[in-house]
Design a binder for these strands. Sequence first.
DNA 1: GTCGATTATGTTAACGCTCACTTCATCGCC
DNA 2: GGCGATGAAGTGAGCGTTAACATAATCGAC
Lengths: 337, 337
Amino acid sequence: MDNKTSRDPAMTDVAKLAGVSHQTVSRVLNDHPNVREQTRLRVRAAIQELGYRPNRAARALVTGKSQLIGVVAQNSTLYGPASLLAAFEEAAAGSGFSVSVGRVKVLDRASIAAAVERHRDQRVAGIVAIAPTASANDALADVPAGVPLVTIDGDPGRPTPLVTVDQAAGAFAATKHLLDVGHRTVWHVSGPADWFDAAGRVQGWQRALEAAGAEVPPVMAADWSAAAGYRAGQMLARMPEVTAVFASNDHLALGVLRAMSERGRRVPQDVSVVGFDDVPEAAYFIPPLTTVRPDFDAVAREALGLLLAQVSDGESAEPRRTIAPTLVSRESVAPPA
Amino acid sequence: MDNKTSRDPAMTDVAKLAGVSHQTVSRVLNDHPNVREQTRLRVRAAIQELGYRPNRAARALVTGKSQLIGVVAQNSTLYGPASLLAAFEEAAAGSGFSVSVGRVKVLDRASIAAAVERHRDQRVAGIVAIAPTASANDALADVPAGVPLVTIDGDPGRPTPLVTVDQAAGAFAATKHLLDVGHRTVWHVSGPADWFDAAGRVQGWQRALEAAGAEVPPVMAADWSAAAGYRAGQMLARMPEVTAVFASNDHLALGVLRAMSERGRRVPQDVSVVGFDDVPEAAYFIPPLTTVRPDFDAVAREALGLLLAQVSDGESAEPRRTIAPTLVSRESVAPPA
DNA sequence: GTCGATTATGTTAACGCTCACTTCATCGCC
DNA sequence: GGCGATGAAGTGAGCGTTAACATAATCGAC
């Protein structure tokens, strides 16, 4: 064995082996120009031979930036945020960044501020916040200007770099689909009012109704849970004039489905239902659910792009992206009886 | 404005303000003894005043360890792994650690090795792997001995630090519950054979049947999806002798529920169904699903504990923990007709 | 061939922290 | 009152990297 088994090889070790200075090794590592091809190869070989890996802490110390992106997200297993997070991690890994997740129980100012602080402690290169509520957005106002920040699903009315799913467009498509099939109007079970996602979907639904000259029934307010969908569904099931329901997400739709089933109202023969999110099980609900599928991968990619643009040049020209979702047609929609 | 607005305050700045040496500041920060109370207070005040935050990169550089824990997990939105991950992040944050997630598309040797490498690049303090398959486990054998490592849901037959849900106990309870209610035997729709979770659940199911002297029907093999559950359910629905089904997770159970419903077999009157995981929607399936709930928070806490023990003292005495799940009784179970 | 420009490489100094020492005071004890 | 032990600080080096500058080698052009 070596006499210093434990210490990882450092840049100087590589340099010695390759017969160059450590600075040249650094240049090779960072793809600087002005390194002779032959030297580059020699250094690469030495790196290989020693199993050298750059020490990111040292690099972070001197550059003041790490290869880490901090994500602030709600500590939930909601399908949307979870998928977004997974997609973002994958995209980041593709660009050589690691992702440090700062989950937050509730989206209030204090919690978010704390999560942001934790990330700044780590000297993250930038922060991505999944901030679907007004309070979460407000909290992000405290983030110092120097920190690159991209918001996902944030306040569409604010001029910060932002990527969102086009909630309104998705909701519009869902509602229009139901109207096109022949329903006179469409009821809506909405997500929590303080979520932009929910608000956007309400908006799209309403616009579609107005565009078709259909009556706009009162919104059934709920949270995102199947439980709330079930409660709303129980009310809707009792009203014979209800023939079409657009639920703000698939779990709400699931609750609606169950309520309808309990009251003997058949889906889709008596009532049509459309959801939002396209959770993997949606195709196996009873009946398979027609729903709106957001492209989380696209959202993640755009967010990463926007963030990295900020990290390097400071600012990007048009710092907001909107991703259009698509309608997925299954068996929960039929013409009214 | 200051002439050096941009630079964050460093330890020396605090030291100057408090009238001590930087080393004393360091001692205060790390709760070393041998600091006079009065000095400690003065330093704390200076820290407060300057808004000083220690530079983790610098600390990591000199200590060789970061306050980061690397997690290797599959890039899936399966409820179990996702919940586990969220719980772990929360537990880690509670101990002042950040979590860097290295998602992996497939649990093969190369991908896992790459994720581990990425984490080692970051000089993580330790690695937690959610490694529910044999191949994932094998890949972890490549992790060098010096790196603290805890496996979650890994190979129960291997002597590495390990935390698992007691799959067999959960499955046993589920199966026994069905037998106790009066069913002569219980059919099983299993998860993918190469997952330890699935294997453990098969084992517990079989033991319960054997303990009761019941016949052991052939296992219906599936993956974790509602789709596979649906396919298995279609077969089971056709067999009149099937009165009770234990599905290896809730999504499989959902598929079974739908297949039964399509074939006109009522749940629970004709067929009883039990799932595993207790996904949030399970209570809103049709009918509400009796299922087995693993305690993900407990798993996360134990895993963190095991990891930190390794980080500090090197090894822990009994490096394996098993967390018993609980049966959640709802309406999908009834005595046979 | 000599000169300025360009290209390739080396040298040195930070970055902000912890660790191993050293220093200086204080205190109890024979 | 001297002496070792203990407590409370300070000093200096070094962690592994990048940035800024200095230097050496190469080259085309007159």
